[in-house]
Design a protein around this nucleic acid. Structure first.
Lengths: 233, 233
DNA sequence: CAAGTTCTACGGGAATCCCCCAATAGCCCG
DNA sequence: CGGGCTATTGGGGGATTCCCGTAGAACTTG
């Protein structure tokens, strides 16, 4: 594959846009777009090959609030071919306008998720016959999926420094106790389970909250889950 | 591609094992394994092409607690080639034993995540020279990634009925208030923010706990995050 | 060895949460 | 229209958490 390997170049916004342009050419698509959300870093990323006119219009109309290609893909493990989406009023509204900008309603969105609640959506569009589309997709889907993982990994990696600085080191005991809280146990229960005083449990939870910069224990639980330190019970 | 499409056959455990056997043959691997966790359904899945002797030994030794191929992959967006793992005491412990069962320490694990906290790990191993391995992986990685998504999607889909039954419908207000809790606000704060009584906040939280089968609000926050209903604050 | 971290434990009291109970109003759908 | 659900509000009271502060022992690392 001759698309630039994002792992080997400096990370600027232009690099991602170029990556999408190259991907678009290689896989014979009209357009490509990547959208990424990183809750742990509070970051949102978006790169597209569309012209500025459609980008502005999409934003002004608030289409991201109703765009079913986004919403259905966020609920899917596998790639979502737009031909399988319901042609409801939201779909029609977005793509009636897209037509006016010369954009096709035939496309595909590939969701990728990371371990800390981060999500990336790589979308590609191509205006051609359904038969041609099916052949094209069947031919390139594996590589597109690999590309989706690649760009999402790289974009999230560029948030990595922030996450390293942000990512606190909870002690073993602190993690253990937070996990019990996530399972619904009270401080007294946890003390009984671990054969320690419930006052000690309280101390560890306080330390956990401080390290996670959380005002409450419930918030600390949520953050620890988001960071992959514990799991929902 | 001539591997059976899991979407077209009845879902039995033998089907997944056959899928892995076929995948192993097609991509010239020694072995293939899939492990999946579905927190929302409380389900754990595992299918492997290894013999029963290694499966039993792996379980008896509790290797899943220390296996770095599992732990590092769970923290990665992209596939993890085992050659890049640190040869620490855990790695050595697992693979010293694996050698005794004729299994290679050369492999690759591909993580896949779904929208509800579910995680799937597809691993493949092949005993050959590093040069051959690099060529083989470069040739098949895209297809392996697509396969990983495919099997994980299908396994999680087989939990779908459970998830539909289990997945509670929180009201808009309940979700909104749980999100504020996840941000660290107290019930009084939330009442002030939303211009409602803190007693009303309490009622919504109790309803949320009931629907999420949670004993505490902290547990409810964790579950809601795991279900993708709210996000860590 | 000294410093830092983790683990253990406690007093006292305020704040918050959550238990039980009660109620009304509005909206939607069969 | 009636039932179910959501949203709103309140009383009374107990349980739990969390605030402030304190301390010592064990372990690790430079």
């Amino acid at each position: 594959m001759d698309i630039v390997d994002l792992g080997t170049v400096p990370k600027t916004e232009a690099v991602y846009s170029d990556f999408l342009l190259q991907l678009r050419e290689k896989f014979e698509m009209d357009h490509a777009a990547y959208a990424g959300i990183n809750p742990a870093a509070g970051a949102i990323h978006g790169y597209v090959t569309y012209g500025d006119d459609w980008k502005q219009h999409y934003q002004q109309q608030g289409f991201h609030m109703i765009d079913p290609t986004l919403h259905m893909s966020q609920r899917s493990i596998a790639p979502v071919d737009w031909s399988r989406l319901e042609r409801g009023k939201d779909f029609k509204r977005v793509f009636r306008d897209a037509h006016d900008f010369g954009l096709s309603e035939q496309g595909l969105t590939i969701p990728v998720r990371g371990p800390y609640g981060d999500v990336g959506l790589l979308s590609v569009t191509r205006d051609c016959s359904p038969e041609q589309w099916r052949k094209l997709v069947g031919h390139v889907i594996s590589d597109l999926q690999s590309m989706a993982v690649h760009i999402h990994d790289t974009v999230m990696g560029s948030d990595l420094l922030g996450r390293i600085l942000y990512h606190p080191a909870l002690s073993t005991r602190e993690v253990e106790i937070l996990q019990w809280v996530a399972v619904g146990k009270s401080q007294q229960d946890i003390g009984d389970i671990l054969s320690i005083s419930h006052r000690t449990v309280e101390v560890h939870l306080r330390s956990s909250r401080e390290k996670l910069c959380a005002l409450t224990t419930a918030q600390a639980v949520g953050r620890a889950i988001g960071l992959g330190l514990i799991y929902p019970g």
